[in-house]
Design a protein around this nucleic acid. Structure first.
Lengths: 196, 196
DNA sequence: CTGATTAAAGCACGATCGTACGAGGATCGC
DNA sequence: GCGATCCTCGTACGATCGTGCTTTAATCAG
């Protein structure tokens, strides 16, 4: 790997963790430079704008999510087991991957009224994730694990709600029982998916 | 009402709407002054710090929420009808009260790693809301609308998830069907609360 | 109406923001 | 090992940030 790309990657990795604490908008070239021990201009040269840095953070987070959550899920047996792995990995990832809150959750609120390529990048990711969940659920229907008339889009919507509620309870309210609440909600979601 | 309080109220009202677009951290004394047609220092004099302004925004949002959501709910008959009204008003409020996204949802992600009185203020509000929902649900249990062994805290958790998922789908993904998804999820939640 | 209080503006401050440019040193292909 | 390319830095810019102070104008109590 050429030197430049190597440094850029290291910067973005740091930026992901900083952004998890202060948000994508809270990211600052100066603070990030101090944090990484580089000069402000040296760091800036790797991105030609702050927007590009933010997009880099989102892209990196996506790579990470795919490696830690999606890949293990796809390695699991099709159907309900795959959805189970997806859920477990997802929840675990949200809990442990970041110094602060999940970058994607924070970005979703920060960017909902900020048109531009950063928002576009996030929307694409979130949309893909939604589709992936629906697809996995559809696989479970095909395998006969879930009932045939299951609305897989609805399931994806409600699963997203469980993850968001978990994030909210665990990170803002510091509720130690948030994980168990989420597990219980997910179990109920599965149960409803099996039979009407 | 004395003049000062009147102006302060007008500023905060404006600030709520601005914050709904740019977030609590995105709020800026200068931009807000321009937006309200005041001088920066004249505006600043009403709060002695930016933190106080942010707390003011949260407090005002709470007043608004209580008036538009909680009060009508408490006016409805105890039990399931009251929870139904609470849900409907809440969803409607999230959809129509703000120029941008819900201030509280955005603040939850922005402040989860920012200790201080702004965060404390938000946590208190969110905690109270959670308690209120649980209390309303407990009333429905007492009325015999919901099953006796219902975990009302779990219901409050899952209802929060539905609202967050709705906000996510409607505001970030611009999904026109988000409202219906939320309604469907809430209906399922009620159904599960009635009988195991 | 008048005297005391208060609201708002003007201006200034140090700090930090994102971004630009040019020079020096390191890295790499050959 | 040399020449071209690519990093990284120092420095600088205009703008804007949050927050003081001082002065004028409006409000309010008696």
């Amino acid at each position: 790997m050429p030197k430049g790309a190597q440094t850029r990657r290291a910067i973005v990795d740091d930026a992901v963790q900083v952004a998890s604490k202060v948000g994508l908008n809270g990211l600052t070239i100066g603070q990030l430079a101090t944090h990484t021990g580089m000069s402000k201009s040296g760091l800036f040269a790797h991105f030609q704008s702050k927007e590009a840095l933010q997009v880099g953070v989102l892209e990196r987070t996506r790579e990470w999510f795919v490696a830690d959550v999606m890949a293990p899920a796809l390695a699991a047996p099709r159907g309900e087991p795959r959805l189970q792995v997806l859920y477990e990995r997802w929840r675990n990832w949200v809990d442990h991957a970041f110094d602060g809150g999940c970058v994607l959750v924070a970005a979703a609120s920060e960017l909902d009224d900020t048109p531009g390529m950063v928002r576009d990048s996030l929307v694409r990711m979130e949309f893909d994730l939604h589709e992936s969940i629906a697809t996995v659920a559809a696989g479970a229907v095909r395998e006969g694990h879930f009932r045939a008339d299951l609305d897989v889009e609805q399931l994806a919507f409600e699963l997203r709600g469980i993850m968001l509620a978990h994030h909210h309870a665990a990170r803002l309210l510091r509720d130690a029982g948030a994980g168990e609440r989420a597990d219980q909600a997910f179990a109920a979601l599965l149960s409803r998916a099996r039979s009407a």
